[in-house]
Design a binder for these strands. Sequence first.
DNA 1: CCTACCGATCGGTAGG
DNA 2: CCTACCGATCGGTAGG
Lengths: 203, 203
Amino acid sequence: MENERAQAHSDSRERILDQAKVLFALHGYRGLSMREIAEAVGISKAGIYYHFRDKEDLFTAIVHRYLDDLARLIDTAQQAHAAVRTQVEEIVGAILRQPAGDRALVRLAGQEMAHLSEGARSRFEAAYEEQFIGRLRDVIAAGMARGELRALNPETAAWALLGMMYPYFTPAGEEGYPPEAVIADLLRIYFDGLSAAGRPHAP
Amino acid sequence: MENERAQAHSDSRERILDQAKVLFALHGYRGLSMREIAEAVGISKAGIYYHFRDKEDLFTAIVHRYLDDLARLIDTAQQAHAAVRTQVEEIVGAILRQPAGDRALVRLAGQEMAHLSEGARSRFEAAYEEQFIGRLRDVIAAGMARGELRALNPETAAWALLGMMYPYFTPAGEEGYPPEAVIADLLRIYFDGLSAAGRPHAP
DNA sequence: CCTACCGATCGGTAGG
DNA sequence: CCTACCGATCGGTAGG
């Protein structure tokens, strides 16, 4: 989705973004040096600094590009005007079926941003809220308003959904994604709960 | 729970473990230098190396000490022989009511261990399975066997529960913990699901 | 974009 | 021989 566009003014810039994305997901922000990125891309370290002001600038470019993808993904699911459960199933499925190196960015962004500069962090938090967790929360809140979901705190419900996907945000499995049975179980728990059917608790 | 025991043969060792625990949770493994730990404890950097072989040895000591706490926590909840929902509520409540610097170790351990040596990583993974996620899975599997829970994959169910707590494993709020209303909502979703009551999906 | 470097700081260790 | 460190510095590497 990100690397299909025709090479704009710079092909190197895109190659740096793609390579660094995978490497950051594998090693973290502090665990990856600019030298290692340069070697992976096949240019000099200074070559990276031609395209990006500093390490933080490169990292935030990767993260914000990915937030754009997530925002589009949620909007696409929402435009169907289907039941909220169908919308959420589409969102969860689309995220968990991304390449592991991509979806690992969700984890990476949240955990490494705390170590960056004040400005980069506040810009990220605003974009994360506006493009990702806020849109997810709005989908859920709309389902509550329509009476399709319990009227719990939509913010808590959105974080719970994201959290359930967290164990699968590791860059480990490389290009693999969790089995469909796992995705189905997660959605079953989120919407129907783990308690045995017919034995509701505190109705 | 960890620092109440009488000072054994070394008070310094315990002070290093306690200080480094908080700092690692805040800055990550690579983001924290031995010099910074030493300054926080009030000893020299070489003083740390007297007690711990290297940085990795210190980090794994912290993590394994915390896994001991988690194992005890789960065992305590299990000994009550109550309904599985009561047991899980006790476990979730106990973890989320720990100081933020403590429960942030769950997140930290899982994400930073990938960057350590092969030996340390395999020892951690074995301990994590045996003392934490395995015990959690066993509690849930027992509930399924007793017919109190749906017969889904207990491994997936255990990771889903842990994942729902993940957003609250940040060291941000310092000593605060999530409001009781959030904990209640999480447990409601996990056991009863988010779908509106009386409208079960695919029974 | 490259070669050639810098100020500083990294994890770890020497002798005492 | 032990413990519990200190002041200084090691070889390498970080971001820029």
